[in-house]
Design a protein around this nucleic acid. Structure first.
Lengths: 205, 205
DNA sequence: TTAGCAGTGGAACGGATCGTTCCGCTCTGC
DNA sequence: GCAGAGCGGAACGATCCGTTCCACTGCTAA
């Protein structure tokens, strides 16, 4: 069962997963870190991609495609507010924003990516417009506010990736729900962040 | 009036301002960029600071002191909610977060900075607790949620610093006010962000 | 069975970046 | 008028990182 081909095919996936993990943690990590995380040599990387740029482009484009897929799915949801919030939760949870915006600028985008990005923007605009028309989204909000929201959720970051997802979900709930305590609220999901979790930057090495 | 001493004293301020601007824009900018922005040579920098670390420490400590000063002022405000929100607006506007957290990790903190940081945390905790006791802050919120809020506001960023401040104020208002449109709202401040302002990362060089 | 090659590991190279040092110049303050 | 504080900026050395290259392995096809 394990021919040379099988091993190579498995490496395809291993390398892509490793690259996603490494570059999500640090968008300008060295390529050697990806190889190390994947448990392969550098040659295995360069056999598949012509260079770092092509690998980053691949990751970014995958992120854009995930974004559009989630947006399509959200438009199928009948309730506009549930569609929008569910979409945002999914996109934040998958850290699509880091995959796309944070990686942009580290490579020159292809025309195809530009097209996908434009399509993604249109889908998101429709999601927002639906919620505006419906009256479930405050009337002075704008598509760009949602983009800013994604940016701000991506900024929530602790060393542990799983915990990061929890904290982002909590932050997103705050954003969607508001801080002032003068109406009924849904409970904030997950345990609240502890001070220690946020002070990790201050550790003395 | 302009002796050599005067010129040197003026350079003290010019260099510090330039350093703040440059490192706020990019926390790991080269030191030469600071000198260039200040319009001085590199020697003028090294005459005042033993190295990059000492300069960064200075900026960070200044940020911490600004933070505690604003917190003190906010505690003097009788209304807990107004005190908390005013404090957050001031801290976000001055980009204190970038000055402290984002610069941390690029140098080894001094014990004195640790003490100031601890004091800052205590003051912030009192601000939050006051608003909790008052009932104006939702009961399931926590000090760390506010820290996350600062982190997320600092992530809102466009090339123009002035516009960045406006957009952050808008985002902060959203955070404090909530997105769902089912109660009375204060108007969002400033003009809404345009798509072009958020697409600047995609520019092809 | 065996020759050939796809696939691989990892050392080595070359370029870029950046903190720091150092030398020569200017111009003030005594 | 001169000693030296203050300064500009070139040069240096260390580090980092993308990429190339070569030797090796063990399938695979004839």
């Amino acid at each position: 069962m394990s021919g040379r081909k099988q091993q190579a095919a498995r490496n395809d996936a291993v390398i892509l997963d490793a690259a996603r993990e490494v570059f999500l943690a640090d968008p300008k990590a060295p390529i050697a870190a990806v190889a190390e995380r994947a448990g392969v040599g550098i040659s295995a990387l360069y056999r598949r991609y012509s260079g770092k740029e092509e690998l980053l482009r691949r990751l970014c484009h995958d992120g854009l495609l995930l974004f559009t897929a989630q947006a399509q799915a959200a438009l199928a949801e009948p309730d506009p507010w549930r569609g929008l919030t569910g979409f945002l939760r999914a996109v934040v949870d998958a850290d699509v924003h880091s995959l796309t915006v944070h990686l942009a600028g580290t490579f020159t985008p292809t025309p195809e990516m530009g097209a996908t990005a434009r399509q993604a923007g249109e889908l998101a605009a429709r999601l927002v417009q639906r919620a505006l028309d419906d009256g479930s989204l405050r009337p002075d909000a704008v598509l760009a506010d949602v983009t800013l929201l994604l940016e701000s959720c991506a900024a929530v970051r602790v060393p542990d990736p799983a915990r990061t997802r929890e904290l982002r979900a909590r932050h997103l709930a705050l954003l969607l729900d508001g801080l002032a305590a003068d109406r009924d609220r849904t409970d904030l999901p997950g345990p609240p962040p502890t001070p220690a979790e946020l002070n990790w930057r201050w550790r003395t090495p």
